[in-house]
Design a protein around this nucleic acid. Structure first.
Lengths: 344, 344
DNA sequence: CCACCCAGCGAAAACGTTGTCGTGTTGAAA
DNA sequence: TTTCAACACGACAACGTTTTCGCTGGGTGG
């Protein structure tokens, strides 16, 4: 087992100073052609690679991005990571991933861990608990210490930083608008409880669309789901008592669950009931019938977030004067038409 | 913007030496009660936290685990990461994730990047290209440098290290055995090309099961898929020309695709055709009909892999003599019965 | 009164780099 | 022969920690 070779060891072997070795490897003109050749040959032979940790300590930057998300077992978040990783890699950055498990405490702990030198900045999406508590001191603190933060998807207005989001409200509006244009009159909504920011926005979009088309907004037609595990009864009740002709669901899971329940009750999708979901993930693609859905491109979102963060990181280098021009980028969405909406 | 405070700054403010500050914070009895109190109060006030990078450099360990996987947009890998992250976190480790995108070169580059001090060890699953090339020098090199590596799922016998796998062959055997016991005679196989190690093993299990039950192994009944994008024609041909009464598919995608194609051709699942898949992911759960499948618990696999790695890391600390007893842990699988198999 | 001990603290090395500055040697110009 | 520039290299500081060791002063025992 040959441990990694260091500058010091090379210097000793070649009987030169550490500085000389370092300079030779960086092709400094200060060092004679001769010595350079010799050192470089030796370094290559022993497969010398500079120690990242030492470099990080010296340069005060780690070339590492911290990602903090609620869950990874969630297709959307996985795609976002994928997008981040790609852009990060192209720019010589690594990503370190922490999961909050939707817990405020874990989010705080992870953030504090990584903030102590492990990363140059953060890309994050808030945990449900954090959204509920509205406590963002951990994020503000990190920002105050000079680490850039980019938030995506589940963001908050209470923290000033770069953000990457979709226009949730507009996307929901368009989905519902599409249903109205197809002639549906009794459009139900299956959504989350209000403290989930994106859920709330999509709910608003639904309401606005109905209003704009002079359709009544009936509370009976709006189902707010707290716990995904036992949402069945609520949806069943909706289907039985209110007989909607279309449903807009704010995520894949709600959409597919609605389909399954409807089918079980003998309601045919899309013949008797059309359904539009949100997020174009695995479920929407492989469900039967496949689900018409609002596509939010996670890869693109991640890529943009990474780009924003890296730009800010490299900007800080030149001018420390930090122009506090925080940007919020909107990622466009579009409706993916599949089998769950009737084409009449 | 107040940058992170260091020992040096505290020392200056309090007019004591750096050593005194450090010792005070670590509650060394060397320092008087008085001084300790003073320093600790000051440190708390300024929210002092030791710099991880400096600690890493000094201790020659980063408390970070490198994960290298082919894809993250893949439910199984996401669950594995989730499992790793959980165990890692409990033990004070962070995880840094790199994606090989099934490319050999990216796998090598990522590994070399992280090997230069960024991580204490690796948990990885081979990219397809690496499996095909059978070139593992990058992994061997890392191991030679004294970094422990744990491989999971897509492993190779050509590298000696800890491994976490399921008994792919046995699991496939049991799935096919189940089909036989239910009275199916014409059991087809939808599998990958042979160089994908787990695909090959599952194929072997299928063949063994048929042999043991004195059923003929017919090459016509075995479909090997190279490119998932255009696999439809092959499966359609299988269904039309060989009319199997059951299909064993070596992954979710093959299973759901088979179901969709069969349904489209008027073959009813499970009435006319039973299907068993592999991997209990999103697709199997939400497909219609939901898919009977071999469950491989990714969370557990990840957790075990992390445990193995961390054990080896902490072991090295006490006795450098490295007992090279590499272990291969088998994660148990079981059949999850759902709607895609008839219950006759 | 002297030696010794111990509490309490500081200096310094070490981890692996990079970069600034200093230093010695050489050759050429004056 | 003297002076000076250029060349080639080394010493050292710095990044932030921890830890070993050494130092000082006051108190105690003989």
């Amino acid at each position: 087992m040959k441990r990694k070779v260091t500058l010091k060891q090379i210097a000793k072997e070649l009987d030169v100073s550490i500085s000389t070795v370092s300079k030779s490897l960086r092709n400094s003109p200060e060092i004679s052609e001769d010595t350079r050749q010799k050192v470089q040959a030796f370094a290559k032979l022993y497969n010398y690679k500079p120690n990242n940790i030492a470099l990080s300590l010296k340069n005060k930057k780690t070339k590492t991005i911290g990602i903090i998300i609620p869950e990874i077992v969630h297709h959307f978040f996985a795609t976002v990571i994928s997008g981040i990783e790609q852009v990060a890699n192209e720019n010589g950055y690594n990503v370190i991933v922490c999961l909050s498990d939707e817990s405020f405490d874990k989010e705080v702990i992870n953030m504090e861990m990584l903030a102590n030198g492990s990363t140059d900045g953060f890309i994050m999406s808030l945990s449900k608990e954090t959204e509920q508590k509205k406590d963002f001191h951990h994020i503000q603190e990190v920002i105050n210490q000079g680490m850039p933060v980019v938030m995506f998807d589940r963001v908050t207005n209470d923290v000033l930083c770069d953000k990457v989001i979709i226009d949730d409200q507009m996307a929901a509006y368009e989905a519902v608008d599409f249903l109205v244009s197809k002639g549906f009159k009794k459009i139900a909504l299956v959504t989350t409880v209000d403290y989930v920011s994106v859920g709330k926005l999509r709910t608003d979009g639904y309401i606005n669309a109905l209003n704009d088309h002079d359709l009544p907004v009936d509370d009976e037609m709006i189902v707010k789901i707290e716990d995904i595990a036992n949402c069945a009864s609520k949806i069943e009740k909706l289907l039985k008592e209110n007989k909607p002709d279309a449903i807009f669901a704010v995520n894949e899971l709600f959409a597919v669950t609605s389909i399954k329940l409807a089918t079980k009750m003998g309601i045919k999708v899309p013949e008797d009931l059309s359904i539009i979901g949100f997020t174009d993930g695995i479920i929407s693609q492989f469900s039967t019938p496949s689900i018409t859905t609002v596509s939010q491109n996670g890869i693109k979102m991640g890529g943009r977030a990474a780009k924003l963060l890296i730009e800010r990181l490299e900007m800080e280098e030149v001018e420390e004067e930090e122009n506090e021009q925080y940007r919020t980028e909107l990622i466009e969405t579009h409706l993916v038409l599949r089998e769950s909406t009737s084409t009449l």
